[in-house]
Nucleic acid binder design. Structure first.
Lengths: 221, 221
DNA sequence: GCAAAAGTGTTCTTTATACACCCATGT
DNA sequence: ACATGGGTGTATAAAGAACACTTTTGC
């Protein structure tokens, strides 16, 4: 959804992708936004995305546009929903396949023209992108309770407190430390690496990593 | 995905919809299939679907094609996934937005060119339609345990045994009658209508209906 | 030695599971 | 009268929720 299409060369069906890239930065859930250049949305921000070409899949288009516009690659991506309202793009008919992506804080470096914005401060976005963001947030919140999707927001090794913080931020509620640890450890999804996080002005925390697994879960938290 | 497009007039991007219509008929989960007319899939069956026109949304296209090809209208529909493999249609590039639909047994009347087939007997379908059916079955099985989606497969009034049978068929496992009733009634999702199902060679069963509600559930069963 | 986060158990409540018999009807 | 599915309760096990103090470090 960007400079590659203009009023003149739009023809049905134009197929695009848009991606809601999420990350937890400084303890706050952020979404990556870019400046939108089309005149109808002058000054507004929107989601990174763009056309699907005839020779690529939607997934390939997402990877390409994220790499170009957001400087992000090899990140977790999941198809969200396809938005097909007739007037969602003022320039013509554009159907968009939306994706949600999760990136760990360590990969959220500055990129020209892209900015990480706290999800409660995104204001009015271009197109129907507010709706797409809400869809992504809903998906993240529901999947966090029955899958291990949070692992995509964490570094390779992490403390149980960091893990707990992820759940608290996404769910918007506090969890009991002892009960949380009991449950997470009993599930066997993570295991201690033997390493410790040192350098903080407190007792060092054990570092954990995810155990490889394919199965789906239910009621993690 | 059908007669409206031919090798000559395909141009990128062709956008289609396909629908996995499911119903439980005689205690067995069925999917509605239609005969596919394109030569490459001669003799094969496939899902009902077709083009999205420039002036309709995907949802409108689904409703239109289901009405035309399956004689089904006003039924539960939910977007499943968008399939964008480059070679999924041998005639050219076609991206398909797939939907899952649920219909009660009472609305599964015979329609010319369409047939209800048990899901474990569908064989090899045209296009990537086996994959789409598997996606729908997975979605149904996962949603049945945390939403009231089964209500779309039942008549307006139903017995608790009928309700339990729906869960057992979809989940593929048996449930304890007493525990099932305790749980369903405690959830308050259904209430007795005061009517009874008579005419069977056994004690009449109380009939229930769904209580109107908007909220999401978790762990219904 | 003080501040800061790590780590750890027990009690109580709620929910899940296992299980067997009598009831009302149609034939 | 008998076959059929409808309807009901209790005891045990498992899971969830509530709750406070000691430990180890950096400064």
């Amino acid at each position: 959804m960007s400079k590659n299409i203009s009023k003149n060369n739009l023809k049905f069906a134009v197929l695009a992708v848009d991606t809601v890239l999420l990350s937890i930065i400084d303890g706050i859930l952020h979404v990556l936004l870019i400046d939108v250049s089309v005149p109808q949305f002058k000054g507004k921000k929107g989601l990174p995305g763009g056309m699907i070409t005839p020779t690529e899949t939607a997934e390939e288009a997402v990877a390409r546009h994220l790499s170009n516009k957001a400087g992000v690659s090899k990140t977790f991506l999941e198809q969200l929903y396809t938005f097909s309202s007739i007037k969602r793009d003022p320039r013509g008919r554009v159907v968009s396949v939306a994706y949600m992506g999760l990136v760990p804080e360590s990969k959220t470096g500055a990129v020209e023209g892209a900015v990480w914005v706290p999800v409660n401060k995104i204001g009015k976005l271009a197109y129907d992108h507010n709706e797409i963001v809400l869809t992504a947030l809903g998906r993240l919140r529901s999947k966090v309770i029955y899958t291990d999707i949070v692992k995509n927001l964490l570094p390779k090794e992490f403390t149980l407190s960091q893990l707990q913080e992820m759940y608290e931020i996404i769910l918007g509620s506090e969890l009991d430390k002892r009960n949380f640890r009991k449950k997470i450890l009993k599930l066997g999804l993570v295991k201690a690496t033997g390493n410790e996080q040192r350098g903080e002005a407190n007792r060092p925390a054990s570092l954990y990593k995810w155990v490889a697994t394919k199965r789906q879960f239910s009621d993690l938290i």
